[in-house]
Computed example of a mutant assay.
Amino acid sequence: MTLKFGDPDLEGLKFLQDDPLVITPIIGNCHVMRVLVDNGAFVDILFHNTFIRMGYNDSQLTPSDAPIYGFNHMECKVKGAIQLAIIIGEEPREATQMLNFQVVKAASTYNAIIGRTGIHTFKVVPSTYHMVLKFPTRNSVGEARGDHKMAHSFYVITLRPDRTGGQPAEDLVPIPFDPLDPEKVTYIGASLDKPLKDRIKTFLQENNDAFTWTVAKMPGIDPNLITHRLKVDPTRKAVKKKKRTYAPDRLEAIKKEVEKLLEARFIEEVQFPEWLANPVMVKKANGKWMMCIDFTDLNDACTKNCYPYQGLIP
């Protein structure tokens, strides 16, 4: 039985990108969307929120000591393991295997990840270029096509700020820098030993000149050292959006934010822009406005990295 790929496998793909291979298999009698096939992962992962939505509970997990590390070399919390049946492909060329999923409690745009363990169990050969994976079955070669449109949108979803806000991993205690200015403060873990806590506090206060409290006082980076450029497809036409009208409170917030960025020299005025997008105002949990820019058109014209490091979310 030969597993091969060719031009017919490219039919239906509107454009070619370096998108991840995302499929919708049946896991434990549930059709689970957004399952990433990743030969860079060693184990098969089922994220805890998906595990709960599938109708399972933590009492059904078996203890697991399998260490899982992210790109930042931080160990992820494994709740336990569970063995579930997974079906890929369609009748009459489908395959069923039992996989041992590590249930991980972490935020992810995916519901599950099939790693090298699952890939080898199914004897799967994935091709991200053709957006399909192929595998042997009793009835010739089976295949599971990736959802190209869904995978293409994950780049934007992954980089979208978390609207709910992150929570600290432990209780924190404030370390003031200036007794006369209560806003100049940082935080350290409350569970630290007192001698270590005192040493950190002393060190931070002795080096308070390394901290800045306004963007205007942040030093810039010499362009000779590093320069960021957008890799825009030269065949794409630049998009200039029409000017929006804003409510008075939003307009005032936009003016203040623009003045702050101009003062810090983070932005500069351009008389004849090629691309033009409107600000999008989002109200934060504290009631203040946050100014974002709608870069949808520009993002669509740029080459994508579909495996972004989530720790670098702007």
Rank of each mutant, 00 (worst) to 15 (best):
A277L: 05
K283I: 15
P219D: 03
Y307N: 03
P234V: 12
L261H: 11
A277T: 15
I293T: 15
K231Y: 06
A285I: 09
K243Y: 04
Q271T: 14
D222Q: 10
K231V: 15
E263H: 09
C292F: 00
V239Q: 07
G220D: 05
Q205L: 08
D300C: 09
K242G: 15
T296M: 05
K243C: 06
Y246F: 15
K242N: 13
D193F: 11
P273L: 10
Y246P: 08
V239D: 01
K240F: 08
E252P: 09
G287D: 13
T214N: 10
N207M: 12
M218K: 14
T303E: 15
A277H: 06
V185S: 00
E268F: 03
Y307M: 10
V270S: 05
D294I: 08
K255Q: 13
I200N: 04
E274K: 08
A253F: 04
V185G: 00
D233R: 04
R236M: 11
K240M: 10
A210M: 12
A277F: 08
K197R: 14
P248I: 12
M218Y: 04
D198Y: 03
N208I: 11
F272M: 06
W289D: 14
A285N: 09
C292M: 09
T235S: 12
D209S: 12
K242D: 12
P308Q: 10
R244H: 06
N286R: 04
Y187F: 15
R236T: 02
N286L: 03
A210D: 05
A247G: 03
E268V: 03
D209T: 14
E206G: 08
I188T: 15
A238L: 07
W213F: 13
K217C: 04
D294S: 10
P248D: 12
F295E: 00
I267K: 01
L192F: 05
R229E: 03
I226W: 05
D198M: 13
R244N: 01
